[in-house]
Design a protein around this nucleic acid. Sequence first.
DNA 1: ACCTAGGGTGAATGCGCTTACAAGAGCGCG
DNA 2: CGCGCTCTTGTAAGCGCATTCACCCTAGGT
Lengths: 358, 358
Amino acid sequence: MNTAPTVYDVAERSGVSIATVSRVYRNPDTVRAKTRERVLAAARELGYVPSGNARGLASRSTGVLGLCFPDYSDPDAEAEAEDDAATLYSDQIIRGMERTARRHGYALLIAASLKGGPESLVAKVAGRVDGFAVLARTVPTEELEVISRRQPVVMLAGPREDLDHLDHVEVANFDGQRELTRHLIEDHGLRRLAYVGSAEESPDVEARFRGYLEACRVAGAEAGDQPAVRVRMMTQAEGARVADALCDREDGRPEALVFANDQMAVGALHALERRGLRVPRDVVVTGFDGLPLSRLVRPSLTTVRQPMLRMGEQAVTLLVERLNGARVEPVSLVLPVSVARRASCGCDGDDGPPPGGE
Amino acid sequence: MNTAPTVYDVAERSGVSIATVSRVYRNPDTVRAKTRERVLAAARELGYVPSGNARGLASRSTGVLGLCFPDYSDPDAEAEAEDDAATLYSDQIIRGMERTARRHGYALLIAASLKGGPESLVAKVAGRVDGFAVLARTVPTEELEVISRRQPVVMLAGPREDLDHLDHVEVANFDGQRELTRHLIEDHGLRRLAYVGSAEESPDVEARFRGYLEACRVAGAEAGDQPAVRVRMMTQAEGARVADALCDREDGRPEALVFANDQMAVGALHALERRGLRVPRDVVVTGFDGLPLSRLVRPSLTTVRQPMLRMGEQAVTLLVERLNGARVEPVSLVLPVSVARRASCGCDGDDGPPPGGE
DNA sequence: ACCTAGGGTGAATGCGCTTACAAGAGCGCG
DNA sequence: CGCGCTCTTGTAAGCGCATTCACCCTAGGT
């Protein structure tokens, strides 16, 4: 692990100036072929790798895009197991971003925020990339606002707020949940629904709830002005707990449990099975997200599919556009979602081959 | 997107020298509290974010670890769908690395290699990180060898080669496949097995095959010295094709199809169902990897579980150790695997809750 | 043979920060 | 009252590369 060779070493070894070495890498065409060969040979012998830092400093750009996301997974042993089975939301976004970034010649820097040190997180990422995406509520909007004055920032999965100048990519939470709810009420004739949302302020989850309410209103179905339950964390464990609680309610078990995400719905599926209840015969369960997991559980889960890969792709596209100076006005993209009608509401999986058979 | 404020701006605004500004961020304790406040206030007003590049250049370290992996997914529409359902190998490793890196104060830079431009890939990553991991065969070993003279490099999922000085993290491919095969032969009394490997040179897949052979040898079961089939790509589609081919063999259908990975095995499951064959009654199928998918298909797949998250964690641990100068000799870690005996070999899922129930 | 264009190369500067090193300020002590 | 300290802050020298400008050399034109 000796100190790494630099342009100076390569220059000396190949008998040229450092400017020429630099040119060999940046603009090979401007260097005579013979000289170029000599330089490359020397570089190879020395094991020279250009310093990204120096490069970035001098050229004022890094060739790297970033992503900040919250750390969903708890370090608990139990959560570990859950992890194991689920492709997380963030995995998909990472994949989408990486793929698209690569296509544009960028690498991707990812960093999850631990609760507590958000400042250092963003600073660390922001200082090392040409632009970056942030999953909603990972970082205070004001902070992003400041940073976005110097580099492109796009917010994922959060609606555009009045005064922010960021680019946004979100999905049609309202429409998706409304359509799903409409399906339950009109196509399956369900009336007594219970919506399970989140206690923490999440604009996405709120939008879903509003979609749910709208569908209820239109169909004249019962629906309080608040979710039946608000959980603290939208995990499988909480979903299971809530399912139990709702089944034990004095005013009778709801006909359908409408969860704000798939994780909770899957947890509920487990809990209901433990109680000996059949889904969808005894109770209908739905989720939201369209995780791969949702298609693979039994019964397969009716849910709203978010194009998560595409969110990542769009985020990168927006960043690149802005880096190329193509746009000035902030945009707010709303990606369409689709309702996956599967077994857990009484439909049969009609959205692709069921696992183990095709 | 004006030009970003620098230490100079902050220094001027707060009436100190740039050294003091720097110290406020690097060693806050060495600056008088009052001065520190002034500097931080100025920084906040200006929206100052330290340049990672300059920082890295001056301090000769980046606080970033890297990962290079091959791009498994084809951009085809069909592959897209497959993607959708699978948590990829790389996702897990990314997650494991990110989590552990964060714990040590590092961020993670990821970059997949497209076929063709491997040189630029590694150079790009290597030049920007303090150390990095590479998935086996993403990059020629010799190239890594050179780079590892200047920064820590660990290879994932590839065995230590004679002359390389890299750190390695692999799993017990041989042991795992041997144990799985032994189980099929001794516990299920199967004799006519067919191993499906890969045409491309993959040390991991080769080790698995050797484990298979060893088990056959010990038990006195038939086994050629070559896999029954070698596929070009280890995908579901190929798995399905191979399953069909093996069933149509003149010398009769094998009792068990032993696949070198889960993806192929799952493809085979589909193909067999299409032919009306029952698994495991008519034919036994096994995989390797322990993807989440393997537990969720019906019948659930008997396979060998690799601790992929842990591989990522170990990779980071090794990198950090080396960065701290703790070690000099290269090490070669072999992580243990475990056989998941599930429905596709006639056992019942005894390794955790079946999906939809617990 | 002289002049002009370029192509190819080197010298020099600066990117924004870290980090010795030095210097000044305040302090207790003999 | 002067010396040696500790605590703070400033000065200055890079870190490794990109890039501008100037320069040299050769080829082509007249």
